[in-house]
């Protein structure tokens, strides 16, 4: 369903021209789970952001369900993010002015498929039930991350992109969260692509790719 074809991406920081991705290609099928590893600064987050239609790339092409990103305008991309995708950021992705509960429901409602029962279950299974009335900034980093995950899953996306979703969690919790994610993915037929530094996590996901020198291996 997601197809990345020799995508390149570089950043201009003042005088420097920094090529982060130098021709990345990848295919991810519906319901498939994939782990992305790589050194810090290798461009994992960048690649994920491109896949999530958040930023433009220099060359190559990305298609999701047959729709080519380069042919989409701002609205098309936004619609894709809203209805097809979900993304869990490394950090700080909650809407600060909404409570935890509203945050969890927010994406699903934006996508036009609110399912309070499902959201409540996700919330419960991620151990967030007691926190729904709180404001995001009153949460710890790990709690915030779980809320972000809950929000993504509650939206029932076709493709779930997660950038180090367990990076802020202790090992036990991380394991639990990962289990849950994989389980949910299986139950809902969602494709999952997650970035991780953890060998254990990568192994549990099954299929894995490694980003190094701007290309996948």
């Amino acid at each position: 369903m997601l197809k990345i074809d020799t995508v390149t991406k570089s950043y201009d920081t003042g005088a420097q021209h920094h090529r982060v991705l130098q021709g990345v290609s990848l295919h991810l099928a519906a319901g498939e789970a994939l782990a992305l590893t790589g050194e810090s600064g290798s461009g994992k987050s960048t690649l994920l952001h491109l896949a999530a239609a958040l930023d433009g790339f220099d060359s190559g092409e990305i298609t999701l369900n047959g729709a080519a990103y380069s042919g989409l305008d701002d609205r098309g991309r936004a619609q894709l993010r809203r209805e097809t995708l979900a993304l869990v950021f490394q950090q700080f992705s909650l809407v600060p002015s909404l409570t935890v509960g509203d945050n969890i429901l927010f994406h699903a409602r934006l996508a036009g498929r609110p399912d309070p029962a499902w959201a409540a279950e996700v919330t419960r299974r991620l151990g967030l039930s007691d926190l729904t009335g709180r404001w995001p900034e009153a949460l710890s980093g790990g709690q915030q991350q779980r809320v972000a995950i809950a929000r993504a899953i509650a939206a029932r996306p076709q493709l779930l992109l997660a950038d180090e979703p367990t990076g802020n969690l202790d090992e036990d919790t991380a394991t639990r969260v990962l289990d849950l994610m994989l389980e949910l993915v299986r139950e809902t037929g969602t494709a999952l692509w997650l970035v991780t530094h953890s060998e254990a996590v990568a192994q549990r996901v099954g299929r894995r790719v490694h980003l190094s020198g701007g290309v996948l291996a």
């Binding site: 701002d74 936004a78 209805e83 992705s93 909650l94 809407v95 600060p96 994406h107 934006l110």
Partner: peptide, 16 residues
Amino acid sequence: LPQIAPVWSLGLTRRT
């Protein structure tokens, strides 16, 4: 910006 970015990432255009 921190208010807007999450909402944008969830699929609202900047225009909206």
